[in-house]
Amino acid sequence: MKRALAIMVGAALILLLATLTLVVMPYLQMSAEQVPPDLKPYTEQQQRGRQVYIANGCVYCHSQQPRDPSFAPGDKDRGWGRPSVPGDYAYDEPHLLGTMRTGPDLFNIGARQPSIDWQLMHLYNPRAIIKGSIMPSYPFLFRHVDEPAEGDKVVNIPPPYGPETGTIVATEDALALAEYMLALDHTYPAPTLPKKPPNSDEPKENRAP
């Protein structure tokens, strides 16, 4: 029994060490990180949109973390934005950094596509806007009505993607998600990003995305 206990205690201690280095220390360091002054907290509606984003698993195809251009030039060159810093995520709970780019990075989608109509139409059927897109349609975020009521947000879907009769209107969830998309705009400067050393210019000439 002594030896069995020794193995278990040893195993637990090693995991404790890993917890210290990989959980506690990063937490201490990053929670002290400065929050960029231009970063705005989410509104209630944007926060609701963020929950819709989580519930429907957008994170499985979209990242929210452009990498440093000196490391991975494609991220900046595609117009996905400057490298993100810990402070950018101060209001993100849980984080939605993502690990997959089946679709593009969304860290600055609000700056790239600032029109709510674009966002809603794209959510209803991505192929109505981008030919060959493999993103799923989200028809359940919309209502199909004969006549839009007062205050309904009408989404004009180009044929043949819309219904043959009637109108498509956005639900509260769709509007919230679209507002969250628009809030994903981190084009402000990040004060904690290291200043460029004098001898290194932009790593690559800026190609238009």
């Binding site: 990063p26 937490y27 950018d88 849980p94 984080h95």
Partner: peptide
């Protein structure tokens, strides 16, 4: 709710 933001990502992948 113990680990918000970027440190949440480290805990997540740890």
């Amino acid at each position: 709710f113990a680990f918000p933001g970027a440190s949440g990502a480290t805990v997540n992948w740890w």
